[in-house]
Computed example of a mutant assay.
Amino acid sequence: MRSAIKIYILIGLVFVNIVLYDAIFGYFNRKQFSLYFLNVGQGDSELIQTRRAAVLVDAGPNQKAATNLDAIMPAYRRTIDVAMITHPNADHMAGLLDILKRYRVRVLMMNGVADISATYDAVMKAVHMNNIPIVYARAGERVSFENVSLDVLWPQLDLPIPAQLSSNKANDTAIVSLVSYRSFKALLTSDVSQSVEQKLLSVLSDIDILKVAHHGSKYSTSDALLEKIRPSYAIISVGRNTYGHPTQDVLARLQEIGSSILRTDMNGTIQAVIEKGKLVVHGALP
């Protein structure tokens, strides 16, 4: 019996030492800023991580977002400071169910549009059971943390709460946000169409990374948008699908503007980091 107790104590001490090592040395080894485009299949999920904070934009259609988070985030960090669900389509929010089983979410940001679906009901039930406060995002609002800002560009203030819309109309109420870290900028466009892009042109300028809207649908990512923002990198979050995403039209537009194209279905989870003042983007992460 005493031998068994000693073994359990030894295992416990080893575990504590591993956690402490990760907490102390992992803190200094982690990048000051990383932006991940998670490989979740036909859906969207992005993670902004700094040394002290984690912000999630969309949760994908399944458990893959949670699996990605487990691989990326340190073992002792099981808190997401802000989770933003850009709109209530299942391929952007269903994965939140698995995330809430493993992580604490401090605040949930949504656009205020409701969906008549079992997935929406299940997610909202889990949110309420975990007592997570909900903030409805509107243009002009900002989330700031550790030299990073997440600026909401869309939807506009006149969108009613709650609103129930068809799937196509809901896409154009999705939250569009601009991620800024020092001189780096990334535009996260969710599923909005060219009509919304047109309305945003006046507030946009050159950016480093574009998260291509709606998995590369031909109804998004217009020539006008690309001419205005001229992204160095274009990230397409996409999986096996029957919609033809990403379309050849969008791929041709991106190639014409000179953007380097990465796709989660081909490159896996994609990470963007700032190293020695330069942007480095690579895929094939877990």
Rank of each mutant, 00 (worst) to 15 (best):
S260D: 10
I209E: 02
P246K: 06
M266V: 12
L226W: 03
L226N: 06
L178N: 04
A234F: 08
L188F: 14
V152P: 05
L157N: 13
P155E: 02
K199L: 15
L159H: 04
S222Q: 11
H245Q: 11
I229E: 07
T242D: 15
L262K: 11
I270A: 05
K211F: 09
R253T: 01
Y243K: 15
H214P: 00
S180Y: 01
L251Q: 12
K228H: 06
D208K: 11
S202W: 04
L157S: 14
V212G: 09
S180E: 10
A224H: 08
L251G: 10
T247C: 07
K228W: 01
D172E: 05
T173Y: 10
Q164R: 14
I161Y: 12
P162C: 09
S217M: 07
L251W: 11
V176A: 14
H215G: 01
D208G: 08
A170T: 15
I261P: 01
L254N: 04
L178T: 03
S222D: 10
W154Q: 05
P231K: 09
S193G: 12
F184T: 01
R263I: 04
G244P: 03
D191K: 08
L188A: 06
I207R: 06
Y181T: 04
Q194C: 02
L157H: 12
T264C: 10
R253A: 03
S202I: 04
V196K: 04
I257H: 08
H215K: 15
K169N: 14
L157W: 11
K199F: 00
S217I: 02
L157C: 02
Q271I: 09
R230M: 11
S202C: 06
S180M: 05
N241P: 07
K185D: 02
L201Y: 06
V238N: 11
D265V: 03
N267R: 09
A234M: 07
T221K: 07
V238K: 03
L188P: 07
S260A: 14
Q194G: 13
D249G: 00
L153D: 03
F184C: 04
R182T: 11
Y219G: 13
L226C: 05
I229Q: 08
E227T: 12
M266W: 10
A252Y: 07
S183W: 02
M266L: 15
T264K: 07
Y233K: 05
S177L: 13
Y181P: 01
E197Q: 04
L165G: 04
S260H: 13
L165V: 05
V203W: 02
P155K: 01
S232A: 11
A186G: 12
S195K: 14
T189K: 12
S202F: 06
Q198N: 12
Y233Q: 05
L225C: 04
P231D: 07
S195D: 13
D208E: 13
T221C: 14
S177Q: 12
I235H: 03
L225G: 03
V238Y: 00
D206F: 00
R182A: 14
S190Q: 08
V152W: 11
H245A: 13
